[in-house]
């Protein structure tokens, strides 16, 4: 059997999701954002909600997410995505409303919006990309940076005395009465990607069924900011980040 016999439309098992545009993504090679974009596109496609989805873009590396996925998007001011998502969902209760935010957006400048939107039990989903660093601005320390990690603004490693402790906002969200589903996943290998997809699907289903607010944290790599190759960054994340941030469902009601 030749290669041409195998490459037939009926044999296709995996391809770029049809909701993902052909425009090339601006992310660095090996960035986890691309994988999460694909998962979101696949889940929306499987749920048949392409016409009913409103995504809210953050400020950060994912600021151009509206160029890559073919659904409706709104661009929020820095950190204010959960507030805009609240308005969207209250005005269009039958829509799937989700925000896509990084750790600088969700856990630093937007902490107030995040915590209050989750605690009010808005029927939205927050996709939280946690790469423990400010990727877009060149690798500065973020609230989520683990102790001891070296960044541009803590070149000797993060110290609790000087910089305080890492903020675990997903664990905080799990303790709130307004949240329905809080999960922490990663996308460093095939098994983890499949699990992350299930978590995103569950969160989207919950928000469509009006079951409180949902948050899915995706532990990601920022190989450019961490100054590593994509493979090395995945290994480093497994060894160092997973110790601090426990993977799995934190709350499922």
């Amino acid at each position: 059997m030749t290669r041409e016999d195998i490459i037939q439309p009926q044999n296709l098992v995996y391809a770029k999701p049809s909701l993902m545009n052909d425009v090339g993504m601006h992310y660095c090679p090996g960035c986890s954002h691309g994988v999460v974009h694909k998962l979101i596109a696949e889940v929306i496609e499987e749920m048949n909600l392409a016409d009913k989805t409103i995504g809210i873009c953050p400020v950060g590396c994912a600021v151009f997410a509206y160029r890559y996925l073919d659904v409706d998007w709104l661009e929020a001011a820095h950190g204010r995505a959960p507030a805009i998502a609240t308005a969207c969902k209250r005005l269009w209760p039958d829509r799937l409303v989700f925000t896509y935010q990084g750790d600088g957006d969700l856990a630093c400048i937007g902490t107030c919006e995040t915590i209050h939107a989750l605690n009010r039990g808005e029927k939205i989903t927050l996709i939280f990309i946690n790469n423990a660093i400010y990727g877009m601005t060149g690798g500065q320390m973020a609230p989520t940076t683990p102790l001891g990690m070296k960044t541009a603004t803590c070149p000797y490693g993060r110290e609790a005395e000087l910089h305080g402790y890492p903020l675990n906002i997903t664990d905080m969200a799990a303790t709130m009465p307004g949240t329905a589903y809080v999960s922490r996943q990663s996308v460093h290998n095939v098994a983890a990607i499949r699990k992350a997809k299930r978590a995103i699907r569950k969160a989207f289903e919950n928000s469509m069924n009006g079951r409180g607010s949902n948050m899915v944290e995706i532990l990601s790599t920022c190989n450019a900011g961490w100054k590593m190759t994509p493979l090395k960054a995945n290994q480093w994340m497994e060894e160092n980040i997973f110790k601090l941030y426990r993977l799995g469902d934190l709350k499922d009601e």
Partner: peptide, 17 residues
């Protein structure tokens, strides 16, 4: 499909028979 699933840019199409 392992390669396609991990590809961040969606560059890989996979066929199986």
């Amino acid at each position: 499909a392992s390669c396609g699933i991990v590809c961040p840019d969606g560059c890989i199409e996979i066929y199986r028979t």
